[in-house]
Structures are given as C-alpha cells and as structure tokens.
Simulated scan of single mutants.
Amino acid sequence: MSTETVSVVICVYTEDRWGDILAAVASVQAQSFPAHETLLVVDHNPTLLARLRERYEADGTVTVLPNAGPRGLSAGRNTGIDRSTGSVIAFLDDDAVAEPDWLRHFVAAYQDHRVMAVGGRTMPAWASGRRPAWFPPEFEWVVGCTYRGLPPGRVRVRNVLGGNASFRRAAFEAAGGFATGIGRDGDKRPLGCEETELCIRLQRARPDALLLIDDRAVIHHRVPPARERFGYFRTRCYAEGLSKALVTRSVGAEAGLETERRYTTRVLPSGVLRGVRDALRGRPDGLARAGAIVAGVATAAAGYAVGTVRSHRGGGRFVIAAAEPAGPDGRTRGAAV
C-alpha cells in the first residue's frame, strides 16, 4: 500500500470553460487511487472564483482559491503548490479529463525514492472528431498533447509536460517553483516551456533525480475548433521558439535544447519522408503534413531567433518562485527571487 498522498491542482481562468472545469474535477473524484485533495486555483477572475466556491461549497475535497501571484499559469501552479498538503502534487489542465487509473500509475512510480516527477500521456479530443488531415502527429504538442517521437512505456525523460504531470513535494523544496514570465497568461500569446525550465533546474539541484513519463497515466485534452486551424499552429510554433529562447537563457543551450536536437534531426525528417511517401502513393494529405512540418520548424526557428535577440537586449525577464522547507503543517512557503 502506497504511503504517498496526492494533491491535484487545476488552474482555471475563464467561465467559458465552465463545463470543462466541472468535468476535470469529476474525473479526479472518480480516480481508483483517491486524491488527497483537489485545488482549483482561479487566475484573477472574481466572478469565476465566487461561482466555483458556491458550486463546491459543500464538497470537503475541493478547495477553491485565488491565484496569489501575478496573472498566469505558472503563478497559479505555485499558489497550488503552496496551499497543498500532499506528498505529491499533480497538475491537470482545466480542459482535460483523466482516466480512472491516472493517479494510480503516478503513485506507483514514486515507490522509487529517486523519482521526483512523473508525467503521462495526453490524448487530443478534437472538436471535429479527428485530427485535421494536414496536421502532423509529430506536432501534437502544439495542442498540448503527446506527440509522435516520444518513447513508449515508462521511460526516463528530460522533462514532463505540464498539463499532465506530477512532482514530489521535495522537488519544489530543492529547485523552487515554476518561473513566471515564461508560460501562458490567459488567452494571450500561447507561450510555454515553464515545466521544461523547472525540470532542468530540478535535475541540476538533484543530480540523482529521476524524471519519468508513464504512458498508462492518460488524460484526454479538448482541442477547440480554433486550435485546429493552421493560423493557431503557426502562432503556437512561433511562441514555442520564443519560450525556448527564454529557457536557454536560464539553463544554457546545451540543456535547454538537448531533447529538441533529437526531435529536429530524427523525428521531424522521418515525418517529412512519411508525408512525401504517402503523397507518392496517392494520398495528397501526406504532402500537406510534410509542408506543415517544414513550416512549423521554420516558424519556431524564427521565434527562437527573435527571443534570443530580445534576451541579449535585456528583455524577457522572468522570476523563479523559491520554495522554503515545509512548515509544521506540511506546506511549502513561496518567495520571489
């Protein structure tokens, strides 16, 4: 029997996702390994905060609280970390639902004391019912999902993906929290990579740490119609380049781009060849996928170049939330550095 207790943090920001939020919470409440607590962190939206508090007022396992830091996903997650009491903190996107054994697979990995983080597999729930014909599976990270090229099974990785991830509390005590100024801020430009920066920082603070992905820990992430369009694809790729520039400024290019080198030199060329081969076999969608891969790489490279120039000029600053040792109540204390 596991001695771990899991706090689940769901960061929310808009009433437009009301149904998604309720579904996410319900999926946590239906876990085969029960969550110790569920925390809904509301990002500077008093109306949504009041509505959720009314909805879960009588539920002793759901806590609704405001983001105590600046607007954005990273500060929301840090608020959840600070207020949680479990030995493991899991994060679930507000527009995703977890399969019943999601937490059970996470907890099983933590029986090894060296494991500091465990991520899972995120499956897209396309609004149209299927992936657009032109959309390459190698780029499903664009919509926050597991992409072709990640190894199967329970494997060691450089970083977990933030919308379906868990961390041992000791990880935050060793490395601090999520850096603000990297990740998403509501509906603004879809930046990311805050979990990448944190995981690299964690491995530097704890060289013995193991970070894993277990593809049996599955969630289903809703992809709305707007994110099925090429315009969003291009915007997200550009934002990824900007984000990677911020990460490499923090941790260096060798660590910040280690996984990306394999992805761009092996996974993506294979995707292009697969698309061209399909086109030659009379399936024109293959050529569209190959073209999207080339466009995605070029757009991300442009974003990285722009982000690098801005960093050298002193732009793109971000703040890392440092976690002090846990207090008597088991909670970590957040501090800005």
Rank of each mutant, 00 (worst) to 15 (best):
I213W: 01
D214H: 00
D215L: 00
V218F: 02
I219T: 14
I219N: 12
H220A: 10
H221W: 12
V223E: 09
P224M: 11
A226C: 04
A226M: 12
E228N: 03
R229C: 06
F230W: 04
F230T: 01
G231I: 02
F233L: 10
F233Q: 07
F233D: 10
F233R: 15
R234A: 03
R234W: 15
R234I: 06
T235G: 02
C237R: 11
Y238L: 01
Y238F: 12
A239S: 09
A239Q: 09
A239F: 10
A239T: 04
S243G: 01
S243Q: 03
S243H: 12
K244N: 07
K244R: 09
A245G: 05
A245H: 09
L246S: 12
V247Y: 14
V247F: 05
S250H: 08
G252I: 03
A253Q: 02
A253C: 13
A253K: 07
A253F: 05
A255V: 01
A255Y: 00
A255K: 01
G256D: 02
G256K: 00
G256C: 09
L257S: 11
L257C: 10
E258V: 09
E258T: 14
E258G: 07
T259G: 00
T259S: 02
E260H: 08
E260W: 04
E260D: 03
R261F: 09
R261H: 10
R262S: 14
Y263K: 14
Y263I: 11
T264L: 14
T264C: 13
T264D: 15
T265S: 13
R266W: 13
R266Q: 15
R266C: 12
V267A: 05
V267G: 00
